[in-house]
């Protein structure tokens, strides 16, 4: 099976019943995508699968032949953080950080469809990604700031 992950091509034989999440974590050594529930309920494992949002914990790996996958590790390019990542740092949009990869992938998808979402659109689009620390207000702020290209609160120290 061929699979493109974060721009790199892989030839890989999926095991029977193997989930895309397991394949990413344990075989491609991309631990950034998180296991939270295994049932598509929490969003911690969110990835872009052929540019659509997918819960990788309920996607069978063998269904991903010829697919293009983007994970949290693919959001920065050439070591430079994406605007959303910078905004998440600047606005303290990660507490424990465990749901953060899924939040960032979902937010990336949102801004790709809607470059200037209002607050209600952000809340609606992001409501499939649970955060038990309650970072939600900061996540909304960070997404809105990134969509405006507002980096004034962002410390250059946090850039790569």
């Amino acid at each position: 099976m061929r699979l493109t992950v974060n721009g790199r091509d892989h030839e890989i034989a999926p095991a029977p019943g193997e989930r895309l999440l397991t394949l990413l974590n344990d075989r491609l050594h991309l631990p950034g995508t998180k296991f939270g529930c295994g049932h598509g309920e929490c969003g911690a494992c969110t990835v872009l699968l052929n540019n659509r949002l997918a819960y990788s914990c309920i996607v069978l790996a063998e269904a991903c032949d010829s697919a293009t996958v983007t994970t949290i590790e693919g959001l920065a390019s050439a070591g430079k953080l994406a605007p959303l990542q910078r905004a998440f740092i600047a606005h303290d949009a990660a507490q424990c950080g465990y749901c953060t990869p899924g939040q960032l992938v979902a937010a990336t998808h949102l801004l790709a469809r809607n470059a200037a979402p209002d607050e209600a659109e952000i809340r609606e689009a992001m409501s499939g990604n649970l955060c038990r620390c309650g970072t939600y207000p900061k996540i909304v702020t960070a997404i809105a700031a990134a969509s405006r290209g507002d980096f004034k609160n962002m410390s250059s120290e946090t850039d790569e």
């Binding site: 631990p31 953080l81 740092i89 600047a90 990660a94 465990y98």
Partner: peptide
């Protein structure tokens, strides 16, 4: 109000949690 010092690891997926120690 300095940024959280481990935020970079968290937003890049590099922070290692027990559930993804392999």
């Amino acid at each position: 109000r300095v940024p959280r010092m481990d935020a970079h690891e968290k937003v890049t997926g590099r922070a290692r949690y027990t559930a993804d120690i392999a």
